[in-house]
Amino acid sequence: MIIKELKILRQHGIQYVPDLKTAVLTPLFRGRPVIKEDPTDQETEKIKKLCPSNAITTEDGFGIDIGKCVFCKECALAYPDKIAFTNDYKIASNDKNNLIVRKGDSEIKFNENIVRPEVRKLFKNALKLRQVSAGGDNSCEFELYAAGNVNFDMGRYGIEFVASPRHADGIVITGPITENMSEALQICWDASPGPKVLILVGTDAISGGMFADSHAVNRKFLEKYPVDLYVPGNPAHPLTFINGVLRLIGK
C-alpha cells in the first residue's frame, strides 16, 4: 500500500525554490520595464494611443507607471529599441510614485522610512493575511494561492492566509473594488483587529487597471486608509508578492 506513495514521493523529490530572493525566471517573463532612451514626442504620442490602460506619463520626462501597466508588452514590441521588459520580478514597493519607471532606473526602490514601526516590530516572525477578491479576474487569486504552495511556500517565513479577519493582521485586496463588493470589503476591514496592514495585489487593485473609469467600480475605500504595499503585475507573480511582503516586514 505504502510502496506507491514512496514511488510518487521519490519522483516528487525536493520541490521548494531554495532561495526566493535570488530565483531567476525565464527571460521572456514580463517583469520590470526598462527605458533604454526616451522616445521622441511624436513616438510618445503613438505609444500613449497604443497603451490600453494609459500607463504612460509625461509629467517630468517619459515614464511608465507600472501601477497602471497591464504588462501587455505592446509598447516594447512597437519600439523595441526604446522600451524593453526585463524578467526582474522584484517590482513591489510601498510608495506609489516609486512605481513610475523612468530612463536609467535599474530597480523599483522600496522606501524604508515610511514603513510604520509597529509593522516591523509585530509581524517580523508571523504575518497572517486575509485575502479579499473585489472584482479580481481569478488570476491574481490563483497566484496568491500558489504563493502558499509547495514551490514558493511563503509559509516558511510564517506568512499565510487565514480564514477569518479576526485572526488576520492584514487585508490583501485583488481586483478593482467593484461597487457590489465595496460594503463587504469595508466590513472585512473593520472586522480585523489591532495594528493591521493593507496590501494591493495586481494592476486592477492598485489603479483599477482597465476598469478605472467603469461605473461598476467604487474605489472610495482606498482614499480612507494608507496602503502599506503595492504589488504590480497582471497577474502579480508569487515571487513578486513574497519578496514585497518580506521587504515590508523587514526580513
Binding site: Y16, P18, N125, V150, G155, G158, P193, G194
Partner: peptide, 22 residues
C-alpha cells in the same frame, strides 16, 4: 517536500497574537 515553517513558528504566532488588539 516543502520547506515548511520553523519549529518555533507556533510560539511566534502566539507571541504576536498576545500583542494584538481585539
Amino acid at each position: 517536500a516543502r520547506k515548511g515553517p520553523r519549529v518555533m513558528q507556533h510560539f511566534y504566532d502566539i507571541i504576536k497574537l498576545m500583542k494584538k488588539g481585539n
